[in-house]
Write a protein that binds this DNA or RNA. Sequence first.
DNA 1: CAGTGTGAAGTTGTTCACAGCA
DNA 2: TGCTGTGAACAACTTCACACTG
Lengths: 222, 222
Amino acid sequence: METTDKKTIHTSVPEPTIRRMPNYLDYVKLKKSEGVLYVSAPRIAHRLRFDATQVTKDLAYTGITGKPKIGYNVSDLLAAIEEFLGFNHLDHAFLVGAGSLGTALVGYPGFDEYGVKIVAAFDNDPLKIGTNIRGVPVMPINKFADLAERMHVVFGIITTPADQAQQIADLMVSWGIEAIWNFAPTSIVVPERIIVQNTSIYANLAVIMNKLHHKTETKTIK
Amino acid sequence: METTDKKTIHTSVPEPTIRRMPNYLDYVKLKKSEGVLYVSAPRIAHRLRFDATQVTKDLAYTGITGKPKIGYNVSDLLAAIEEFLGFNHLDHAFLVGAGSLGTALVGYPGFDEYGVKIVAAFDNDPLKIGTNIRGVPVMPINKFADLAERMHVVFGIITTPADQAQQIADLMVSWGIEAIWNFAPTSIVVPERIIVQNTSIYANLAVIMNKLHHKTETKTIK
DNA sequence: CAGTGTGAAGTTGTTCACAGCA
DNA sequence: TGCTGTGAACAACTTCACACTG
């Protein structure tokens, strides 16, 4: 496998493949906890309602190889997926906006298991400053610059209301953040070099609402 | 656009188009609040970093038509997008799992503005039962069936830990829910007819981590 | 000229078909 | 037979090119 240049640092893994990876991880962890030794692509596909070939191709991106008729070794596969997702690094993150969503994210289970540690939260509400959320301190925003450098934080999470998101994003950029995960219900604009992931709750909601109304239509009400 | 009257719902709108719609809505609302009368696709595209033709095509799905050189009437466009997203209906939803994420969602701004009203939350923690979150009561799960029918709730939101998600999904299905929005970090399996949207925080995280590590690679550290 | 609207080309991702293997 | 692995067909989405319009 390592013979062809084709294998040299897969210049680009399809984004859908990356998005499916956590599903495989979840399933494989489950199987491992059950003591299962091998899993096959068709089985995974069946459980997750994916196409079997797709699973095979996705898993190939992790560099693993399986055995015909048997499948993939569960432990090897688990390691390969974790490696692929970069969970050997532990990246430090700052979160800005300690409202209910921010609080929920700080407490989200398995974040560090996924290679991310939220080391501080920021807010401009004096009542929140000085408190902490599950051990993560809440600080005033002007401390950010200082700390980001000292703690080598390259990853910023925005959970502010929409009208503050752009402003916070600008600050993050000026402070040297490399990637921004934006949960505010508005899209932010940053320089090319910055990685942005706009995660809008509303995009998902829109899809559901659309399907729901479509379905209703099909059913010919009443 | 010959006419099939604009009401005959386009047989199938591409999902990416639907996902972008809330972005347009957000932008158009902003413009309206600024008193702007017309917006053009290229301007929207520039702000959102989309392709201009794509914006044009997306907006066409709402049934609106623009004026060459001028663009789209802001009020008409706003109405068209809201109509498209189905915000005239107000759908009732139940949420199961009143932990931090569930609590955050109940309090999420503009949910009802987006056509969804969370009318009750459920949990199995006796300490939570009987309390309420911003006016939304928290009840024991066995009340679900009863209420779902009475209140015509067709939409269930799962914010439980991963290990309870499937079980809750099964219950929702048996109680007549039509659409499930699953935030638990595991994918659930339901009958074909049920609409499911698995919204995994981890899928987004995986994309960011992948890009971040890739970037590091490219930069050749040190 | 600055925009809409649309068919056609291009790109990306998914699914099929099948060779090879245990 | 049940699986991996892969090239090739296919489907979905995006971008280009351009006619048209106020």
